[in-house]
Computed example of a mutant assay.
Amino acid sequence: MGFAKDAIQVAARDYEGIIWAVANLADMPLSDHTCNIILNILSPANASEFTRVLSNNGLLIKVVPGKSYLQELRYALYGQTQSRTDTERKLSAHMPDNFMLADVHNINYQVTVKKDALDSLVSMPPLSWGSSEAHKQKVLSLDQLEITVDLNILAGKKQ
Rank of each mutant, 00 (worst) to 15 (best):
G2V: 13
F3S: 11
A4L: 14
A4D: 04
I8W: 03
I8C: 10
Q9R: 10
R13C: 10
R13Y: 09
D14E: 13
Y15R: 11
G17T: 01
W20R: 00
W20C: 00
A21P: 00
N24R: 06
L25F: 03
L25T: 05
A26Q: 15
D27S: 04
D27G: 03
L30A: 06
H33K: 15
T34R: 10
C35S: 04
I37E: 02
I41N: 05
P44H: 03
P44W: 00
N46D: 13
A47E: 14
E49C: 09
F50R: 11
F50Y: 13
T51E: 09
R52A: 01
S55V: 07
V63G: 05
K67Y: 02
S68W: 00
S68E: 14
Q71L: 11
E72M: 06
L73W: 04
A76R: 09
A76H: 00
L77N: 05
Y78Q: 07
G79Q: 01
T81E: 00
T81P: 01
Q82P: 10
Q82V: 08
D86Q: 14
D86C: 10
D86W: 01
D86M: 09
E88Y: 00
K90I: 10
S92T: 05
A93N: 06
A93E: 03
M95E: 00
M95V: 15
N98S: 08
M100V: 15
H105S: 13
I107M: 09
I107G: 06
I107W: 06
N108M: 09
Y109C: 12
Q110G: 12
Q110W: 02
Q110P: 04
V111R: 04
T112H: 11
K115D: 02
D116G: 01
S120G: 15
L121G: 14
P125T: 11
P126R: 14
P126E: 05
E133H: 09
H135G: 05
H135I: 06
K136A: 04
Q137H: 13
V139P: 07
S141N: 14
L145E: 10
E146I: 15
N152M: 12
I153E: 04
A155P: 03
K157A: 08
Q159L: 15
